[in-house]
Nucleic acid binder design. Structure first.
Lengths: 224, 224, 224, 224
DNA sequence: TATGAATGAGACTTCATTCAT
DNA sequence: TATGAATGAAGTCTCATTCAT
């Protein structure tokens, strides 16, 4: 799934009409994508206020007024970026299946979260910044959409516990713990680099990371 | 330990002399403290760029030029805030003692980190924002000071492992995992609130949190 | 030659393309010129630090941010003004021709310098202020460009002396003397006014000036 | 004569009273002098607006409020500096004596002006800056005091001309020419340095200068 | 769809000056 | 006489946004 091309949360007018419009629509789609990608990068580096439309426009190889043709304000652009992120970010959680064994499901979930950190570290940091700043923009979405998704999955975990398939831990805390641990490698990347050195083989690093996280968490939720 | 009064990183002239000087020095100390406290709050809410000296000055009940009389630029103020935070933040880690049992030491460490999240959530968020933004200011400190402190403590953990007192986990990943999990409750407080509801008893909430985190991590590092 | 339209030192994109571009480029050229003219006036009156962008923008009938759209900082604007001045100022010197008689050449040079003082007294004063202040901005240009131009012309004068066509005076001192005397009437205009009264006919005044200066200098360098 | 200690133009309350006051008055005198000297240096480098009281106070090794105790505003301090300069600057002109031969008198005058440039280049530049900036502060003094002194001496020169002791040149232009040429070496020192190189022996340089200037001017005003 | 030009609202910072002691 | 503390006014510069084409 590509950032900036998520149709479910980002309202897009369905292009319908003569061929010329279709072509233009392709340009539009490409430009939107380029903008969102550039914005993600710049927002992740400088935060909402720190980022400037100039920087984003330059990264997207586009004039500032043209950028504002696609997203009519800085805030709107920021919101679009956040929505995209949230969707990809929640996708794996939605897939937790109570019919499967918790070991398998939770292990797979951790894998996917780490993969997200590896693939979209900048997106992850935009999200982290927004939340750490008190979610001025995203609060409503957190209070409704996020809350509902998590509530549903907490129920799944509770079922596993009731069935005696895993230890009796608070589902919410477990979920948050997994989030915290897996995102840490994206959000605090500089710090991680400072500690471990930057010259590590990325593939190897993420394997190590995965192994260590799983060793502790999976053992921690085993029924004893 | 109070924010803004840390003498080890923030150079403060020791007030010694006639009474008049002491009094003036007290004004200074009090003002510095008020500024640092106000700055922590504002920076945590809006990030470095998003925060304005106007806001900070108002919060500190002080004119802007007077604020700049104490900290000669926004960046210097920000740096002072970060230094203070880093020091308090690392203190508990420094206390890990290889002569004690790892269960006790790590348990105590987790307690202290959670306590920090509870007492200084805003400070924690300033730090998180800085790191997520790529640590433009703090990078040098991370690469030297932080790196050294952690290296020393990684050695302690490795000794415990060698002595067979705990499971064979990577010390760096363990430390980062504890950081990730304990800070999450400060840094992502809004998100936590959205999920758990805000009307929870703080005391009870942190007890729950502590219990759940420890249950998983302590079990996860048990020698099997 | 008009101030602010000097293409040799002040990079200007050559306008070439469809009519629309030409028109816009004309706006640019016109605005640049207006700004440089206004800046010369204000800088001459208040010096670099004393001048404010507000004043310059108002004189140029333009908003301050728009002014900064053309010259991205006060210093850049100042530099542009100085470069323009230096070029016009040195032009006449470059024309000294060793194949002609020194009387004719030096006489013509004095004429041109006085004319410059008459036409661009403000520009001359900006230059004088910069140099008197230690040339914080212009030093590098003086050390290279100016130095080279003068060195070349000193050689011309030495040739005249060798050929016995004029008295044996130091070329550098002669050139500086001419500068000093001719610029005085622009740079110290207020003082001149105070002494001679302001109600003098400008044409007549400059004729008098020219006559007196030439009488002394030309006689002074005659081979005896 | 020392800069900053000129009692004729700079109003000083005559200290009279008990011994203690006299002592303090000595401190006062010393401080005034130090301030004026520091101010001359800073004003010469940065102009009136460019200079800051902070810089001057630091150079004078004094706190800013204390400096303002002696000169109650920046403008007042600047005026004091200018008055001092003007006095020393005019002194030699006042000594032109019609009873002596013009060659001797004018030659001596040039000597003294060059000496002033050599001894007080910074003072000379403060003056130059003020005049080039339109003499916002000094205009009244120029219009009265300076005007009168020069008028008197112009009469002396006219007498010499009438008596046939020198060529028939305009006295005002002659005086201004001497000013222009002799001050040039102080006011445009950086430019002179750029052209001639800085590593010249100062003594030798000024001898050369004097020689060249006199050769031209003295020859120029000879009766033919 | 695209962009050069323009601007109002502010942000940081400096600085002469005053206050209180 | 001296100075730490404080501030109002102003200055440079940035930036999201709009205008005109």
């Amino acid at each position: 799934m590509k950032l900036g091309s998520n149709p479910s949360l980002l309202a897009e007018v369905a292009p319908s009409g003569p061929e010329r419009n279709i072509k233009e629509s392709r340009i539009q789609a490409r430009n939107r994508e380029r903008i969102l990608s550039a914005a993600t990068e710049i927002f992740s580096r400088y935060g909402f206020r720190g980022a400037t439309l100039d920087q984003i426009a330059e990264r997207a190889e586009m004039s500032k007024p043209n950028l504002l043709y696609y997203f009519s304000s800085k805030e709107e652009l920021y919101l679009a970026v956040l929505r995209d992120i949230l969707e990809i970010w929640l996708q794996p959680l939605k897939e937790l299946d109570e019919k499967e064994a918790p070991e398998h499901e939770i292990s797979a979930y951790i894998d996917q979260k780490i993969e997200f950190s590896r693939l979209y570290p900048m997106a992850s940091r935009v999200f982290a910044n927004e939340i750490a700043a008190g979610a001025p923009i995203l609060k409503p979405v957190l209070d409704t959409y996020l809350r509902d998704v998590v509530k549903k999955k907490a129920r799944v975990i509770r079922k596993w516990i009731k069935r005696g398939e895993m230890a009796d831990v608070d589902p919410y805390h477990l979920i948050m713990m997994i989030w915290a641990v897996t995102q840490h490698y994206a959000d605090f990347a500089v710090q991680v680099d400072s500690l471990l050195g930057k010259n590590l083989d990325e593939q190897h690093f993420y394997n190590q990371t995965r192994k260590n996280i799983k060793r502790i968490i999976m053992k921690g939720i085993l029924r004893n």
